[in-house]
Design a protein around this nucleic acid. Structure first.
Lengths: 76, 76
DNA sequence: TGTAAAAACACACTATAATGTGATTTTGAA
DNA sequence: TTCAAAATCACATTATAGTGTGTTTTTACA
């Protein structure tokens, strides 16, 4: 599972939770439905702006943070 | 200050802190120096992959999180 | 202060993200 | 079960991110 695929899933889950369709979210974010579909399904390498427009609508924000140390014994 | 500009500044600060040049970081991340320059100076709308390659080298990670409520009285 | 490395910038070209259209498949509700 | 909406997918086109080259400006150090 790549990072892009994870982000796609988060977006899809968040949209489902808001009970809106891909078309509705795409229109609200002012991006093509095809673009949103590809991002949700992990097939895209979206631009920052596309990602930001979507996350803005969904009440999410994109942040940069210092990477946590990987714990080899972590269960998840 | 846009989000893209903020990210550029974070990348630049992090790189300076690591004491490496744009050229060195660009080579390590396997992206063009021009691309890195534009991202650092807030002139780019980078793809997720470009951003990720850079942040990987810098020990940063891109995350999506629920937006915090804006406090109108916040000092910063 | 010279001057060499680094950064900033312009510009043209290439690769690819974004889009629109239309078809197919899946989903869920009557 | 229909049947319509939603999602998935293919494909061609358009817009633009990424790149390379060369030039100018800035930075920092001898």
């Amino acid at each position: 599972m790549t990072a892009i695929q994870q982000i796609g899933r988060i977006i899809q889950e968040r949209r489902d939770h808001m009970r809106i369709t891909q078309k509705q979210l795409a229109d609200m974010a002012d991006i093509g439905i095809n673009t949103l579909y590809k991002i949700e399904t992990g097939q895209a390498n979206p631009t920052f702006e596309s990602l930001q427009r979507i996350t803005d609508i969904l009440g999410l924000e994109i942040t940069l943070q210092v990477k946590k140390i990987k714990d080899l014994d972590a269960t998840s």
